[in-house]
Amino acid sequence: MKKLLIASALALSLPLGAVANQIQVQEAYRAAAKQENPGFKDFSATRGQAFYSAKSGDTACATCHGDSPKAHGKHAKTGKDILPLAPSANAQRFSDASKVEKWFKRNCNDVLKRACTSEEKGDFMAYLLSLK
């Protein structure tokens, strides 16, 4: 799968660095998810999609990032433009581990009032990476 992704990135002449980094970021979540839950099997794009649109109180990820993560979002409070979240529309997304962690920390706190699990983070990435 990893080889296939890198090969297709090359074929499409996407920035290879970003794609390799996205895989690395998600693999780190996989290792952490196994630690957190011995019964963990694999990430699921379907679960990630449900997580993306699920409301907690009156807020969901989609409130600011938009119903389609391939389109621009809009900050619910300030109205500031938010670049697309899906890597197919914005290649740099999820390619910088510390940036990814920074935003999961902030946004999980804001939306869910708690930290996200590694499984939730990996599912979320699986969904966004599945959007072509």
Binding site: K77, S98, K102, K105, R106, N107, N109, D110
Partner: peptide, 12 residues
């Protein structure tokens, strides 16, 4: 910044 006008905007 962890409680920045109702949002978590924390930095390292």
């Amino acid at each position: 910044l962890d409680k920045h006008f109702g949002a978590d905007a924390s930095l390292n």
